[in-house]
Design a protein around this nucleic acid. Structure first.
Length: 406
DNA sequence: AGTCCACAGGAAGGGCAGGCGA
DNA sequence: TCGCCTGCCCTTCCTGTGGACT
């Protein structure tokens, strides 16, 4: 028996009719996604050629130098590394010397939290499963070296966000992995470390620095003109003809160029602007859609950061928001702590000390969610003055997200 | 010039959870 | 399986700080 009444059927049939009737703007949405790998990477010709030159010895059975790649977010580091090494793997098929690439992203949870996890993740890439815990690290290294040697080829390991790995695990693991070449008889291992932290190498153990940093490549940020070209190339495939109004690509590029030339940001802006326009049933993506997209992306970022914070940090922010809603522009630490204590009592949460709350406030400042400065009132003491630099719409969404807890 | 205020923030260490490794 | 280790979160204790006040 049909469980839907005739009326319900009418409602559901109308549910998607507006969408179906509207003119689609996208012809291929995935082109604008972060995971898409294009055939061509504009304005990275030099880096591609340099990296190609560095890894080329693999095609004659040699060991390519280890490389450090630096550059801000969205400057094409990972894209270039993956593209060049894909090409190397393909080229090696036609030679008697085979090459293989492995990729590990150290920002992923449960991948690079500990030395053990990194090694077990690498082993799984070789198709060898190891227990989640229990094995001595030495044994794991031996198993890893054995698996490497069994490959009988040049293995290139791309370690993305390598600074995250060193921060969590320490640099000893890098030294140990580079040691592999002394143990290997039939394979060779090279490492390409990618980082957006330019100061990272300075803090490395000198042994690791000299062995890993044999070659260095720097990816400068894109400028607005270069970003325009990148966007135009992708937009040509991603959107229907005439879907983009004049000035839209220029605006996306200019906004992303202001933020350290991040191509990913530019692509996100264009994609979200397209989605907003399509959802509104508009026939073209206009500049106003880009403005909305910028706000949407920023709001999502703030809400995601806040949701990921511990409950104590959220309640501190909630106290600040309550003061702001009460008409205040700036609040002092003591006032935040008073309200924080009241809220803790009301919600049954444990109260932290002033020292700890002061750290939580500093952390919120560091994330850019609040803004604070130290002010001295002379003999009436020194304090931190906090304000909330969020737009109304971000404030509203944040309030909605937090109100479910308090 | 010295005092005082109300914190900021550094250092040290406790408690706990989860991972490590024999 | 279980003792040890490590990292995280937190407290306690302490020193430092800038400017109004005396």
């Amino acid at each position: 028996m049909d469980v839907l009444s005739p009326q319900a059927n009418t409602v559901t049939s109308q549910l998607f009719s507006k969408y179906l009737e509207s003119q689609p703007l996208f012809s291929n949405r995935t082109i604008l996604s972060a995971s898409f790998t294009p055939n061509r990477i504009p304005h990275r010709e030099k880096q591609i050629a340099d990296l190609g030159r560095i890894v080329a010895p693999a095609l004659k059975g040699g060991k390519p130098s280890n490389v450090f790649i630096y550059g801000r977010t969205g400057t094409g580091k990972t894209l270039v590394a993956k593209m060049v090494l894909d090409e190397l793997e393909r080229a090696s098929v036609q030679t008697s010397y085979k090459a293989k690439t492995f990729y590990i992203n150290c920002k992923m949870k449960k991948v690079a939290d500990t030395e053990y996890r990194v090694l077990s993740h690498l082993m799984s890439q070789f198709g060898k499963e190891v227990p989640f815990t229990g094995l001595p690290t030495d044994q794991l290294y031996s198993m890893f070296f054995k698996a490497l040697d069994e490959e009988e080829r040049t293995v290139i390991l791309i370690v993305d966000e390598i600074d995250n790995l060193v921060e969590r695990v320490g640099d000893e693991i890098l030294y140990n992995i580079t040691r592999a070449n002394h143990e290997l008889k039939k394979s060779r291992l090279s490492i390409i470390g990618i980082t957006n932290n330019l100061a990272f190498i300075e803090n490395l153990d000198p042994r690791v620095r000299s062995s890993l940093g044999e070659e260095e490549l720097v990816f400068a940020p894109y400028n607005a003109v270069q970003l325009q070209e990148i966007l135009k190339e992708r937009a040509y495939i991603a959107f229907e003809v005439g879907a983009i109004a004049d000035g839209v690509i220029e605006k996306c590029s200019a906004l992303a160029a202001q933020e350290h030339g991040d191509a990913r940001r530019a692509l996100d802006l264009l994609r979200v602007a397209g989605e907003l326009a399509e959802r509104a049933g508009d026939r073209k993506i206009e500049i106003r859609h880009v403005d909305l997209a910028e706000e949407r992306i920023d709001t999502d970022r703030v809400v995601e950061i806040v949701k990921a914070q511990p409950r104590q940090s959220q309640i501190v922010l909630w106290a600040i928001m309550k003061h702001i809603e009460g008409g205040r522009r700036e609040i002092e630490t003591s006032e935040i702590i008073d309200l924080y204590r009241e809220l803790c009592k009301a919600s049954g949460l444990r109260e932290l000390t002033q020292r700890r709350v002061s750290d939580l406030i500093a952390e919120l400042d560091m994330f850019g969610i609040i803004s604070s400065r130290i002010v001295s009132h002379g003999r009436y003491g020194r304090t931190r003055v906090v304000s909330l630099p969020l737009s109304d719409s971000v404030h509203k969404r944040l309030k909605a997200a937090l109100s479910q807890y308090f």
